[in-house]
């Protein structure tokens, strides 16, 4: 029986976010939230480990205005319960604060054998919460895992880095971060969604995890957020394929790429 914790973040849905063309700042009225793709891969991997080895999957989430329905969508993949801190103090959290809250939640949820995280969040792309949680709990970490196998009290992980592929072996407990390559999360069936609606989402008051003030104080502050706007011509070339190809050649010629 393995106790598996999975960290998930209620992230800004980057696909629905729009920006103001004058200020280039995000338009807050277009803000929508969902669990990030890498986090969903982490949940899927946890559920597969549970299916092969037996165990329990607990989701951990820290943030502000957490919507239990969004947590339940991730639970529908096959998680058993969830521990959530939803507090205004975590609203502008950096990864130092997230890691502190998630590590404390993991302790509260009980002795994990494996903690799984997405390698980076959909919105903040900070690439560090997994390793930070590992350090906070004094556990080994393995990031960018593309294949994971649990054998008795060990994991064997395949890890893709810039110059190659590593095979690592480590005894449990361990913190593992995964990217999109590791699996394709299943689409929950109606039955699974219904089952998830009855599962427990434990909202934990921030006071209950007893973190000192400095562990809740962000070290990285946003000064501004601006869309990167590139002026493109947006010309659609139309006609028969022959005609389009000729037009494209004249474009390349007038552009000076070919002569």
């Amino acid at each position: 029986m393995l106790n598996i914790h999975v960290c998930v973040k209620q992230s800004i849905d980057i696909n629905s976010l729009e920006y103001d063309p004058d200020t280039l700042r995000p338009r807050l009225e277009t803000l929508q939230f969902r669990i990030g793709d890498a986090d969903l891969c982490a949940v899927e991997e946890a559920v597969r480990i549970k299916e092969n080895n037996g165990g329990k999957v607990t989701l951990l989430c820290a943030g502000h205005n957490i919507n239990p329905d969004i947590i339940r969508e991730a639970m529908a993949i096959g998680a058993d319960d969830a521990y959530v801190v939803s507090d205004p103090l975590v609203r502008d959290a950096d990864q130092w604060v997230y890691a502190n809250v998630l590590a404390a939640l993991s302790v509260l949820a009980g002795q994990p054998d494996i903690i799984l995280c997405g390698e980076s969040s959909l919105d903040d792309s900070a690439y560090q919460v997994g390793p930070r949680i590992a350090e906070e709990l004094d556990l080994p970490s393995i990031t960018h895992v593309t294949r994971l196998e649990v054998k008795e009290r060990k994991i064997i992980a395949e890890r893709a880095i810039e110059d190659g592929v590593e095979i690592l072996e480590v005894e449990l407990p361990v913190v593992v971060s995964v990217g999109l390559e590791i699996n394709t999360p299943r689409l929950p069936s109606l039955l699974m969604i219904r089952a998830a609606s009855r599962k427990n989402v434990n909202f934990i008051p921030l006071d209950a995890i007893k973190l000192p003030k400095e562990k809740l104080s962000s070290l990285v502050k946003y000064c501004d957020i601006k869309a990167i706007k590139v002026g493109r011509k947006n010309v659609v070339l139309s006609g028969s394929l022959e005609e389009i190809a000729s037009m494209l050649l004249s474009v390349l010629k007038s552009d000076g790429v070919i002569q």
């Binding site: 130092w96 792309s125 560090q128 880095i161």
Partner: peptide, 23 residues
């Protein structure tokens, strides 16, 4: 901004209670 470097920095920053930013 490489995978190993980000992991090393993230861990060390957490140990020391410091800020870390990537990429």
């Amino acid at each position: 901004a490489k995978k190993n470097v980000r992991e090393i920095f993230g861990r060390a920053a957490q140990r020391m209670g410091k800020a870390c930013v990537n990429n």
